[in-house]
Every structure is written in structure tokens, then in C-alpha cells.
């Protein structure tokens, strides 16, 4: 059984080795005449401005956070999926399916919640997220002044 992971190991070693061999070969073969314009990063022909390290939008972080939680879900479904066929063959397939569907249904509630709040929208309608705050503050700060 452990031998089957040999393929995984071989694949990893080959893919990492391929990168090194390719870079080494091109370093040996290519002519070496560097100049500042050549060494600058390629920006579709434009002259690059400033640093490559810019502050990313916070929305990436939120999407990554939600992705991580559904990742945990996938990991837990994985072993169930591995034995699902055995449960089908012993006649308890419906039971396993309903258990799995209940697991997913609870998570769909969370997905609907995140969706409804607009967490999954790239350009979030801020008004929706802050609607309650605005209602609460409407008395203090009238939005339209006459």
C-alpha cells in the first residue's frame, strides 16, 4: 500500500526537478547581455511604476476565509465518499446518503446566509451590510437634509 505513494513521491520529485533542470539549462545556453531595460519587469510594454508589493483588497481575505471553511467540509466528506459504495452494497445507501445530505444542508444554510449578506459579491453593496446600522443611526444623522 505504501508503495502506491511512490507514484506521488516520484511525481513531486520529477516536477520539482523539471523546474531546476529547465532553469539550469536556460542559464547555461542563453547569451548573457543584461541591461537595465531588459532586467525590468515586463508590464505589457509600459514602464513599471512603483513597487510590486501593493496592499491587496481586504475582500480577498474574506473570500479565502470562507473558502477555508468549505475546505474543511470537503475534507470531512472525503472519507464518507470513500466508503459510500460499500454502504450501497450492504443496503444502507439511503441512510448514508441522508446523513451526508443533512451535513451539506446545514452548510447550505451558511452559504445562503453569506450570499444573502452579499459577502460573496465582489463589489459589495455596502448599504445592505450596513442597513441595520443606518436604520439605527438614521435618527442621529438624517441622510437627506431639507
Amino acid at each position: 500500500m505504501l508503495r502506491e505513494y511512490g507514484a506521488v513521491l516520484l511525481f513531486s520529485v520529477l516536477s520539482i526537478g523539471f523546474i531546476f533542470v529547465t532553469l539550469l539549462a536556460s542559464k547555461i545556453i542563453r547569451p548573457n547581455h543584461p541591461n537595465p531595460v531588459k532586467n525590468s519587469p515586463y508590464e505589457c510594454g509600459e514602464v513599471p511604476v512603483g513597487n510590486a508589493w501593493v496592499n491587496f483588497n481586504i475582500r480577498y481575505y474574506v473570500l479565502a476565509l470562507i473558502f477555508l471553511l468549505f475546505d474543511v467540509e470537503i475534507v470531512l466528506i472525503l472519507p464518507v465518499a470513500a466508503v459510500y459504495k460499500e454502504w450501497l452494497n450492504t443496503g444502507f445507501g439511503l441512510l448514508a446518503l441522508s446523513e451526508l445530505l443533512l451535513f451539506i444542508a446545514i452548510l447550505v444554510v451558511a452559504l445562503i446566509y453569506a450570499w444573502g449578506r452579499g459577502d460573496l459579491n465582489w463589489i459589495k453593496t455596502y448599504e445592505r451590510a450596513n442597513a441595520m446600522d443606518e436604520l439605527k443611526n438614521a435618527g442621529d444623522y438624517p441622510l437627506e437634509e431639507k
Binding site: 471553511l69 467540509e73 451535513f103 446545514i106 452548510l107 451558511a110 446566509y113 453569506a114 459577502d119
Partner: peptide
Amino acid sequence: FELVSVLIVVLIVGAGVML
């Protein structure tokens, strides 16, 4: 197994509140 699902729901709601 099912409670983990509930836990993940709580975490997603928590992430939304943080956001």
C-alpha cells in the same frame, strides 16, 4: 459529524460579522 457542520455554519457567520 453533523455537529461539525453546525460549527462551520457558526464560523461562516462569525467571518461575516468580522467582515
